[in-house]
Design a protein around this nucleic acid. Structure first.
Lengths: 338, 338
DNA sequence: CCCTGGCACTCCATGGTCACGAGTGCCAGA
DNA sequence: TCTGGCACTCGTGACCATGGAGTGCCAGGG
């Protein structure tokens, strides 16, 4: 067990190192923090902390640097989440309020997060897996060409062209439209497949091909729509990684271009609380020297998406967590309103 | 006027420097290239080339490095466009052929360009300024809520919700739909505003508010749709910038995040021929140590969009130009087919 | 007139030495 | 259990010497 003071020393080390980006020694520590003990005592504490693996020295006779484990302890037990100032909150709100559509909300959120945290921001588009169908529309563009439009309860609209195997008339189409709607309206995307499974059976032989094609396209559209997309920004902040950054930055950039990796990363975050993954806690190798701070956002109690930032393990955790949490809240509000 | 041999020397310098990334001296040049003259002669030529501003030396008694002006001459007069190999072409084609929709085409193109050139790729979405309206659909979702759907001749579909100032009936809506279509179908986006200008006048007083709202939303949609968007990729290749890259990379990353800057950059490219902007020829300051190779792509003779790459001025121009040109061609083909 | 070999000069890069200072570990004493 | 003191370790930066690559210039030859 670590004594109270040793934890205090660890906290001081983390804070100083985050600020100066340089290994911190016992003397400097006692000068910058009111620990009430001498450097020699701090040295003993440091030795103990190193023994436990919370800090390390780059080389003998250099100051100490927090390890991933040290940051973990710091985040879990020593640091709170630093709330944003009132002006900051106001700025966030007004910036997000002026968004005109979903794309705009997401892109503004990314820029906001990047600017607030001075790190790389990642925002997942709101997931539609829980969306329901509000209306399905079919338009006859030519005898064998139908446009399929799906409207969701979130106000999102998707459309697709359908080439029919045989000419189709307005009347048959109206019939299909009506039956389709009566079956799927109000239901979740995920339930649609079984709801329309045997729809073609209730049609005449001649129209079955068309019905099947339309239904298939509808299912395709819904599946594709629930695919998760995301937006990133603030990559210029990667230059803040530190001196050795040429080596670090490449795998990070590569990881950032792999949407799959990022989605997995965000997916690991809990919905409700800010989740922090530090250094090697990240499964992806290229991100071993970065930390990911993420949280879910949503209009109600359920998260409809996640957002977060990627930065050096040496980051201001309380501030970053505060910013991420605040942005997630406001995004949730905005989405609930629209 | 520069003699033939001096141009040959410049070409050799550019080629060597691009390959080695180190200042090239007279002796090394004569060894690696069959110039048929001695180092001393080359030195004289170099002095002349330096006098004219085509090359420079980082410090006295170091080798020479091409200047922006030197690269310019190289691109204009000394280097051809290196065509891709047949396997490369085949790979491009099959990779692009498997794209399923427009977004996919663009994203595949970006990845392709980045991989082929090993540089940062930028692809502009096909512009819709020349598109025409194929069909306008209005759907009554609730008494005061109408969905507006616009279908373009390129198969693209856009939709928007309209909140009407007063309840509207199916009949009035059908009327509006018919008149709207008869006016705008087949016309270009840019012509639509004046075509629908006085449309509301032919409606009864009670419906005019709705008509105006719908028309306004239609115009909004078309304007927004013609807004230019783009996609970038391969930012990990920024690490190939060279030793001094920490200083160079930040402004480049910043510029890449500014869509406006990039659009302007691409906009400066000619439609039909591969355009190269070298170093300080780029208006944007952050890109003063980069070169931009861009070209328009299109399904017919007209360009519907542009694409290109951003890389260090020290780049393989013939190869890059070849790749950019080839990709643009195939993208044009793909778009023409769909 | 142009090319060539020779020569002196410049300057960067490399590597070695050295002193300094920050930081540590340990120990004896309060 | 804390503290002050002390010896020790190492990385850093300054300084210097050396080597080598490259240049500019000049005189001589085709």
């Amino acid at each position: 067990m670590l004594s109270e003071r040793r934890l205090e020393v660890l906290r001081a080390i983390v804070q100083d190192y985050v600020g100066t980006e340089e290994p911190v020694g016992s003397k400097a520590l006692t000068e910058r923090h009111r620990l009430g003990v001498s450097p020699a005592t701090v040295r003993n504490d440091m030795a103990a902390l190193e023994e436990e693996g919370f800090i390390a020295q780059p080389h003998t006779s250099a100051g100490r640097i927090p390890t991933d484990k040290g940051y973990r302890l710091f985040v879990d037990r020593l640091a709170g989440v630093k709330p944003l100032s009132t002006p900051e909150r106001r700025a966030i709100q007004s910036f997000l309020d002026s968004a005109v559509d979903l794309d705009d909300v997401v892109s503004r959120t990314v820029r906001l997060l990047a600017q607030l945290t001075r790190q790389v921001a990642v925002v997942q588009y709101p997931s539609l897996t829980r969306s329901t169908v509000r209306h399905v529309e079919l338009l006859l563009l030519s005898p064998t060409r139908v446009m399929l439009v799906v409207i969701t309860d979130t106000g999102r609209v998707e459309q697709r062209m359908v080439d029919c195997p045989a000419p189709v008339g307005e009347i048959a189409l109206a019939d299909l439209r009506a039956r389709l709607n009566s079956r799927v309206v109000g239901h979740r995307f995920t339930d649609v497949p079984q709801l329309v499974q045997d729809l073609h059976e209730s049609f005449e032989q001649g129209d079955r091909g068309t019905v099947s094609t339309v239904v298939a396209t509808l299912l395709e559209t819904l599946v594709e729509e629930t695919e998760e997309r995301l937006m990133i920004g603030g990559t210029a902040n990667l230059t803040r990684f530190g001196h050795d950054f040429p080596l670090v930055i490449r795998p990070v950039l590569e990881a950032l271009e792999e949407q799959v990796v990022l989605l997995k990363l965000l997916g690991e975050a809990k919905d409700s609380a800010v989740t922090v993954r530090i250094g090697h806690e990240n499964a992806h190798e290229g991100l071993n020297s970065t930390s990911v701070v993420a949280v879910g956002y949503g209009s109600g109690d359920e998260a409809v998406g996640k957002l977060g930032v990627v930065g050096p393990t040496r980051m201001d955790y309380p501030g970053t967590m505060g910013a991420v949490r605040a942005v997630a809240r406001y995004v949730g509000q905005i989405l609930a309103e629209s």
